[in-house]
Design a protein around this nucleic acid. Structure first.
Lengths: 146, 146
DNA sequence: CCTTATGGACAAGTAACTTGTCCATCAAGA
DNA sequence: TCTTGATGGACAAGTTACTTGTCCATAAGG
């Protein structure tokens, strides 16, 4: 039928609203100088062993763009650059305490934003949905929708 | 549990991929000078009775941004501005034949992009999912995710 | 070694918005 | 009917989050 366009538009609207809601909650917790993309940078950096080039690939942007983003996060006190133990060119990225605090705030915000879905669908169907999403959505960069 | 962040990231990744796939198919049909946002402008204009200010609200941007988008679409031959019958300030927007052709191409592309979901979930569960999305996603502007 | 690839810095350009300002026209009340 | 405030739209300039282009120091493989 013609659910196709509706489905696309709804998924797009949903993702926009999730991002916006998470961002709003994080801002409200005092992190007003962070944008949504920063959250996904934190997610990658918090895994450890991350260089600027790794981050660029993860976000699906050029390494110059990632370098600018890192520079901004360093300037704002969320990220630090360490020398790489085995590569004098590279620098390993790490989160400061402020960076970890922002990451925790984003986690909490995401849980709150998704809560209506858990409740409306029930735990079982929600898990099923997450499983379907995992199965049907090929891994790719985490970026603005277009 | 901690599906929350995964769910958000997956929805975001999915919407990005849907948009990108639809855009790729539309481009391949010869509409290389169109961007994803244009499709949602066409969707609104094709309803009829649309001014630039209406379009701005629908897309969630300033009317200046909408005016620039309309100017571009007029220049490329997809949209025409008609005088408004009852308001000498306003202009009604309409699609040219090229505009309608692009709209049809986008519809078809959306169906193709969503097809894997229909098949994987089955018609019944897919409809259920669309219903859930419709119910749980408050209406809002159709825009890039952030 | 010598060649090629890679992480990163520096500089400039660009696309898609924004804010700010202005004007013509409309709608509604005194 | 006049006047006052809101609205559709145009014009101009500023901003942001990227991009492309270039370069250097270091690394890795023959």
């Amino acid at each position: 039928m013609d659910d196709a366009l509706a489905f696309s538009a709804l998924v797009l609207a949903l993702s926009g609203q999730l991002v916006q809601e998470i961002h709003a909650r994080v801002s409200q917790q005092g992190f007003e100088d962070l944008r949504p993309a920063h959250g996904f940078a934190f997610a990658r950096i918090s895994l450890g062993d991350t260089t600027t080039a790794d981050l660029a690939e993860h976000l699906g942007v050029t390494k110059q763009a990632a370098a600018q983003l890192v520079e901004e996060l360093v300037r704002k006190g969320y990220v630090v650059r360490h020398p790489h133990p085995h590569d004098a060119r590279a620098r390993l990225l790490g989160l400061t305490e402020a960076g970890w605090a922002a990451t925790r705030a984003a986690d909490q915000a995401a849980r709150a934003a998704v809560a209506p879905w858990r409740e409306a669908l029930g735990e079982a169907r929600f898990s099923e949905l997450v499983a379907d999403l995992t199965r049907l959505t090929p891994p790719g960069p985490i970026r603005p929708a277009w």
